[in-house]
């Protein structure tokens, strides 16, 4: 369906995407990575909106760049949330249907708007919409020509929990119908709930790819640094080093204990018991490298 072959893109001396190759089959694929990782640039090259500096992107075996005919079969929802505010939602979706040569644009717009559950607001100007409503109407415009491939850049931005549930159900339904859906996100849980396959992009490179379970397992097994503030750091350090979940212990000058663990779940259970038995008061337990960047960084190094 979508083939990305040795694709790179640089802006001056900044490399945004570096030598990335993969293939995408029907189903939901998540493009996951921290902000600034190159997801949007990659997605834009996959849509043909941006050119590649090297390598090539093909969709249905044809180059996607400068190939407008392909857009009959592709629906793209870009990261930008701006819309033609002077149009009503229905006018906007009908316009998109007309541009995409749909036989009956009005009826197609009605169907697409019903899919995103926004019929009640379809005749209001879009500059009166909330962010979530704009996103849903943009999704309706993306779906209006019934595309086989959907490329969605951070589609859940601005959606409230109810809208998220609705949106996720809709995407699953579309995937079950045999469509190819690529959605980018920087939120692991978001991708985890939806995607069958994950492409992990870090620093413009493909850090990992595969099933979401394998990626999640790799994330769970990574080493964590945990700082523990307590009433007696020296004694706790001596005791905690004996725990099976702990690999190394370091005592900071301020008296707090920094523990390296590959099994944080066990540590969460063992540590309070240990402290209670030794009559040591735990004041603070905090992960030191739980940011998304460090999680992705670990996978890149791995």
């Amino acid at each position: 369906m979508i083939r990305v072959e040795a694709v790179s893109r640089w802006f001056g001396s900044v490399v945004a995407v570096s030598d990335v190759s993969f293939e995408i089959a029907p189903g939901i694929t998540g493009l996951l990575g921290p902000n600034g990782a190159g997801k949007t640039t990659l997605l834009r090259m996959m849509t043909g909106l941006a050119k590649t500096s090297s390598g090539r992107v093909t969709v249905f075996g044809e180059p996607v760049r400068n190939n407008p005919a392909l857009y009959r079969r592709i629906g793209v929802m870009s990261e930008h949330e701006t819309v033609y505010g002077f149009l009503t939602g229905h006018e906007f979706v009908t316009l998109m249907a007309r541009l995409r040569r749909v036989a009956d644009p009005g009826a197609a717009a009605d169907r697409a708007i019903a899919l995103v559950d926004l019929l009640e607001a379809q005749h209001r100007r879009m500059d009166t919409y909330s962010r979530g409503m704009r996103q849903r109407m943009r999704l309706a415009a993306t779906l209006v020509h019934d595309p086989e491939i959907l490329l969605l850049d951070e589609p859940l931005n601005g959606a409230d929990p109810r809208q998220r549930v609705h949106f996720q159900a809709l995407l699953r339904r579309l995937a079950e119908q045999g469509r190819t859906i690529v959605l980018s996100s920087h939120i692991l849980e978001e991708v985890e709930q939806l995607a069958d396959t994950v492409l992990l992009i870090v620093n413009g490179k493909l850090a990992a790819s595969g099933g979401i379970r394998a990626i999640r397992a790799a994330l769970d097994q990574r080493p964590y640094h945990v700082r523990i503030g307590c009433s007696d750091g020296r004694r706790l350090a001596a005791l905690v080093v004996a725990l099976p979940s702990v690999e190394a212990v370091h005592l900071d000058p301020d008296g707090s204990v920094v523990v390296l663990s590959r099994n944080v779940r066990d540590l969460q259970i063992e540590l309070p018991k240990l402290a209670q038995n030794a009559a040591i008061a735990l004041r603070r337990v905090e992960p030191l490298d739980d940011s998304l960047e460090s999680v992705f960084g670990y996978l890149v190094e791995g």
Binding site: T47, P68, Y71, R72, I74, H80, T82, M96
Partner: peptide, 15 residues
């Protein structure tokens, strides 16, 4: 400026 041009260029029509 509004970043809406993609709505047009992502249509299956000649430039």
């Amino acid at each position: 400026e509004d970043k809406t041009l993609a709505n047009l260029t992502l249509a299956p029509i000649a430039r």
